[in-house]
Design a protein around this nucleic acid. Structure first.
Length: 790
DNA sequence: GATGTGGGACTTTTT
DNA sequence: GTCCCACATC
């Protein structure tokens, strides 16, 4: 009923409603540069969206003049929706709101030819980069000299983030050092392989865009003229390349360049000032140095610290009021972060009351800890908290294993964000490789992957022959394949190569007028890939075939939401999904993710697990400069995600590597005032409580101590190995049609005996609520729980 | 060239 | 505990 509201409020009043004075100032400030220092939960997204909406509403900018950079695609979509909600859909049409990487892809696809690339380039994700590096290491025998794909990939990435390329690096490299000389060689090969494959890696997307802008001022001017308002979220996590990109975009266009451009395009721009130049775009950055957690991938905290020096006359606005968390949670966060000495002191405050105490728990093992988390989640759910409002954080992806296992047993619906996931499965990579060879015939990595998948009798020898032919003739691997009959190979192999080449060529020719799901289906069917999976004797292949079907469904969904989307668009989208993009608010599941992925999100109830030395802070961070401080910020980020309930847990022993190691409570725990935490089981209690485990541990609590060596083999609980696996990987314990009813007595391998109090749900999803004699009430998925009826 | 097996390395975080 | 690779055998 806007017309009624119009009578009492102006658009500006509505734009500012509910904002505090600092937020209002941040929305309304007009000037060349604005830094919003936004503490956790201080409403920065709201400020940013209203700032954009304000510009549009006041007709100070067209939508097409706005470029907003967010950290994830999900954040971009949300921001777009929120702006649209204020100004209307049409009035917001044409804005660029995206991640750094997506924006750069967009620019590079338009301008690729300027820098000698095709606009149909594909993107190598980290796994692709590593695979390529691995190959190069083998070719150069560098793998025997202590080079690992991981270390080389990290080093190259770091260099690219500093905008160094092979040549600039080689110029200052010390060739007397054989390792360094070899690294230059590896770097050089890596770069030329990418170029030959017509592909960019993640870091190239940014670096090449910067290079494009610097080398071609006229191209840069197109964007400098277009984007009058540049806004960057999570500025504390920008690296040098991203910083440079922002600098290039917000540079004024010199008069003669502007004039040249206009002459070429035959129209005159309203942007030109009296002297003929186009003034710099206005820049708004939002960030919080306390939440800088990406130094390991080149994020430079100086970008935000030195903003005022970089942009003289910049306005700085501080947002310190927190609207998210209770006082207890904030007190804990403030206490922890204040131990970082190298920071500007700032304290979040809230007008919300104290809230519940933080709950602490020390488990005997990672499984025990996971059981605590599961039990608490069940209790929260019983009290009416929706699963979607609950999240579990951890430092390393490997910690999900125990959590998933217990969650499935406890019938808690969950979803793991990021980590080893769908697109990293071999069969999905195979299917994707087929698509890539169709979208980008020059990519030899994708072609090599599928050349003998399904088995065609094309082995390493054939591949080498093809490669040799390609190298001597100066053609691509794919072209060499078309000339297979010239190679003097056996008739079977030649036929197989010919057939594959024809298949790929035909699908490539058809692809532009064919929906993506159809292209994928044709490739999978015609290649015999699906058939091979279906006819396989390996029971896992059935699940693999289902996964591939799932990929077809993904392409269908892509085509539905993007009717004009090309195969290349699909591949690009898949390459650039961030872990947090997978968060689905509608799914009604608990979210599991790393602390890094958690940045920018918030939940009613948050569990931070594994709050132990060597895990948080991570062992690897100790040797890095600034490592422990960054780990502390990571913990701080985790704490500040919680709105109402925060749980901190750790384990005294943790399975790692098949070994069990003893863990110590994290130093950060001691930084939280004791009165804020209510321990359900404190480290001391877990330590001194009777029973075989604690005592044995007490005697030998030292780092790295290997339990397996000296612990007596009989723990109190009988160790029954339960047959159990993840849904996705296939096999699962199955109780068949076991049916339970209230009143039944059952035995559970871990929980002992108990009585069923109620049963809910249907079929495979039936859940029994059981009152166990020893361990209390639990919810179990009947089909898979390790139980038997008595 | 395909298939099976034993030994070794490996896990920090991500676009 | 798991993934990957080298090596052996068919």
């Amino acid at each position: 009923m806007t017309f009624i509201l119009d009578g009492v409020t102006t658009p500006e009043e509505r734009l500012l409603s509910g904002l505090n004075p600092q937020q209002r100032e941040a929305v309304l400030y007009r000037g060349e540069a604005l830094l919003i220092v936004a503490g956790a939960g201080s409403g920065k997204t709201s400020v940013l969206t209203r700032r954009i909406a304000g510009l549009l509403q006041a007709r100070e900018a067209w939508p097409s003049q706005i470029l907003a950079i967010t950290f994830t695609n999900k954040a971009a979509n949300e921001m777009r929706e929120r702006v649209e909600a204020i100004v209307g859909r049409e009035a917001a049409d044409g804005m660029w709101i995206s991640t750094f990487h997506s924006a750069c892809v967009r620019i590079l696809r338009r301008e690729a030819e300027t820098i000698g690339y095709t606009k149909t380039f594909t993107i190598y994700d980290s796994a692709d980069s590593r695979a390529l590096i691995k190959r190069i290491l083998k070719e150069t025998d560098a793998d025997t000299m202590g080079f690992t794909p991981g270390s080389v990939a990290a080093r190259i990435s770091k260099l690219k983030n500093e905008l160094a390329d092979v040549d600039s690096f080689a110029r200052q490299a010390n060739f007397n050092d054989p390792k360094e000389a070899l690294f230059v060689e590896i770097f050089r090969r890596y770069s030329s392989e990418l170029e030959r494959a017509k592909a960019f890696d993640f870091d190239d997307l940014i670096a090449q865009t910067v290079y494009l802008f610097r080398a071609f001022p006229k191209v840069a001017a197109l964007y400098q003229r277009r984007f009058r308002h540049v806004l960057v979220d999570e500025y504390q996590d920008t690296n040098h390349a991203q910083y440079s990109l922002i600098r290039e975009l917000t540079r004024p266009v010199e008069a003669h360049v502007a004039a040249e451009l206009e002459a070429e395009q035959g129209y005159s721009s309203s942007q030109r000032a009296a002297d003929g130049a186009i003034p710099a775009a206005s820049l708004t950055v939002v960030g919080d140095s306390d939440q800088s957690i990406y130094a390991f991938r080149g994020a430079d905290i100086r970008n935000i610290v030195e903003f005022e020096r970089d942009f003289p006359g910049a306005k700085v606005i501080l947002l310190e009021q927190n609207y998210r968390s209770t006082q207890n949670i904030l007190d804990a966060a403030n206490a922890v972060i204040s131990n970082n000495f190298d920071r500007k002191d700032k304290k979040l405050f809230t007008t919300v009351g104290g809230g519940d105490k933080i709950v602490g728990y020390t488990g005997y093992s990672g499984h025990d800890e996971a059981q605590f988390v599961a039990d608490e989640i069940t209790a929260l759910h019983d009290r009416g908290v929706d699963y979607r409002d609950i999240a579990v954080f951890y430092r390393t992806n490997s910690q999900t294993r125990a959590l998933e296992e217990i969650f499935i047993r406890s019938a808690i619906p969950y979803r793991v964000l990021g980590g080893t996931k769908f697109y990293e499965r071999a069969e999905i990579k195979d299917a994707m490789a087929y698509l890539i060879t169709v979208a980008n015939p020059d990519d030899p990595m994708a072609l090599r992957r599928i050349m003998n998948v399904p088995k065609r009798g094309i082995g390493p020898a054939t591949e080498a022959a093809l490669q040799l032919h390609a190298d001597t003739r100066g053609i691509t691997l794919r072209e060499a394949m078309r000339e297979a009959d010239q190679l003097g190979l056996g008739p079977k192999v030649t036929g197989a190569l010919r057939e594959l080449a024809t298949l790929l060529d035909e699908e490539m020719e058809r692809a532009p007028r064919t929906p993506v799901p159809d292209t994928l289906k044709a490739l999978l069917e015609r290649s015999g890939y699906l058939e091979a999976l279906r006819n396989s004797r390996d029971p896992q292949d059935e699940a693999r075939a289902e996964n591939v079907e799932e990929l077809v469904a993904v392409t269908r969904e892509f085509q539905r939401s993007t009717p004009d989307g090309t195969l290349l668009d699909f591949l690009t989208e898949v390459s650039l999904v961030a872990a947090a993009d997978e968060l689905d608010d509608s799914s009604g599941t608990v979210s599991l993710m790393t602390l890094h992925t958690a940045k920018g999100l918030e939940f009613d109830a948050v569990f931070i697990t594994g709050v132990e030395e060597d895990l948080l802070p991570h062992r690897m961070s100790a040797s890095e400069p600034g490592g422990p401080s960054e780990e502390r910020r990571l913990f701080y980020v985790g704490i500040t995600r919680a709105r109402k309930k925060l749980y901190l847990s750790l384990a005294m022993t943790r399975a790692q590597f098949g070994d069990v190691t003893v863990a110590m409570p994290s130093r950060y725990l001691q930084e939280i005032p004791a009165e804020l935490i209510e321990w359900k089981q404190s480290p001391g209690m877990a330590n001194s409580r009777g029973g075989s485990q604690p005592r044995a541990l007490n005697a030998r609590r030292e780092r790295g101590f290997n339990l397996r060596d000296s612990l007596p083999p009989a723990p109190s609980k009988p160790r029954v190995k339960t047959e159990w696996t993840n849904q996705v990987t296939g096999k699962m314990r199955d109780n068949g049609d076991l049916t339970l009813a209230a009143g039944d007595r059952i035995r559970h391998t871990d929980f002992g005996e108990g009585r069923v109090t109620s049963v809910s749900g249907q079929g495979a999803k039936s859940i029994a609520e059981v009152q166990f004699d020893q361990v209390g009430r639990k919810r179990l998925l009947i089909k898979i729980a390790p139980i038997e009826k008595l």
